[in-house]
Amino acid sequence: MSQANFTLTRDAYGRLVFQAENGDRHEGVTPVRAFPIAAPDDGISILSAEGHEIGWADRLADLPAASRALIEEELASREFVPEIAQLLSVSSFACPSTWQVRTDRGDTALVLKGEEDIRRLSATRLLIADGNGIQYLVRDLGRLDRHSRKLLDRFL
């Protein structure tokens, strides 16, 4: 287990402040996931306000609780990737088509412009881009119900 050599706090304006072991201080830093879909808790980079990497954590779990909470809070405020739990219906098997889906954030409709907007990340994981640029994640095809898998099979 590696321990990060920095701490994070918030300033009076709500910006993240990075404090290195050697005393270097940077205000307005941004945490970034190296592998946001495949390994979201592994490889966290801390970027300066100018976009230069100034810190790294191999694993989010290795960070002290206070810094970890600040990073998770900051990432949650910027990341929006709803996870599809169920496909309720599709308007057509030809594209463009409107999909009614149930996600971890509620029921919604997405427009699939083309089959190329479905990207296979692994044998069981998909990333689906809708017509508005929102990315939807199917974490595990095997965990979808039979009806959802049957609908998806028509597009894969």
Rank of each mutant, 00 (worst) to 15 (best):
S2D: 13
S2Y: 13
Q3K: 12
Q3F: 11
A4C: 06
N5P: 02
N5G: 01
N5L: 05
F6E: 12
F6P: 04
T7V: 02
T7G: 05
L8V: 02
D11F: 09
D11A: 10
A12G: 02
A12S: 10
Y13M: 07
R15T: 01
Q19A: 09
E21C: 06
E21T: 11
E21S: 06
G23T: 09
D24T: 09
R25D: 06
R25E: 09
H26T: 02
H26E: 11
E27Q: 11
G28L: 05
G28I: 02
V29K: 01
V29T: 03
T30P: 04
P31Q: 06
P31A: 04
A34P: 00
A34M: 14
P36F: 15
A38K: 14
A38P: 02
A39S: 08
D41H: 11
D41S: 11
D42M: 05
G43P: 09
I46P: 00
I46Y: 00
I46N: 08
L47E: 12
S48Q: 10
E50G: 04
E53T: 06
I54P: 00
G55I: 00
W56A: 03
D58R: 15
D58S: 13
R59P: 00
R59A: 08
A61Y: 13
L63Q: 12
L63Y: 12
L63H: 12
P64R: 10
P64M: 07
A65R: 14
S67F: 10
S67P: 15
A69F: 08
L70D: 14
E72H: 09
E72W: 10
E73G: 03
E73C: 03
E73K: 15
E73N: 04
E74S: 15
E74G: 05
A76G: 02
A76W: 03
A76M: 05
R78D: 15
E79R: 13
E79S: 08
F80D: 10
P82Y: 13
E83D: 10
E83M: 11
I84F: 12
L87E: 01
L87A: 11
L87N: 08
L88W: 02
S89E: 07
S92W: 04
S92N: 14
S92P: 08
F93I: 13
P96T: 05
P96C: 04
S97I: 03
S97R: 03
T98I: 06
W99S: 12
R102K: 00
T103C: 13
G106C: 00
T108M: 05
A109S: 11
V111Y: 02
L112P: 01
L112D: 04
K113M: 10
K113W: 12
G114D: 14
E115C: 06
E116D: 14
A123Q: 12
R125H: 05
L126F: 10
L126H: 08
L127G: 01
A129D: 14
A129H: 13
D130V: 07
G131C: 04
N132V: 01
G133S: 11
I134F: 08
Q135V: 07
Q135D: 14
Y136P: 01
V138A: 07
D140I: 06
L141V: 06
G142Q: 10
R143F: 00
L144F: 11
R146S: 07
H147S: 13
H147L: 09
H147R: 15
S148G: 05
R149W: 06
L151Q: 04
L152F: 01
D153V: 00
D153A: 11
F155C: 11
F155L: 07
L156S: 12
L156N: 13
L156E: 13
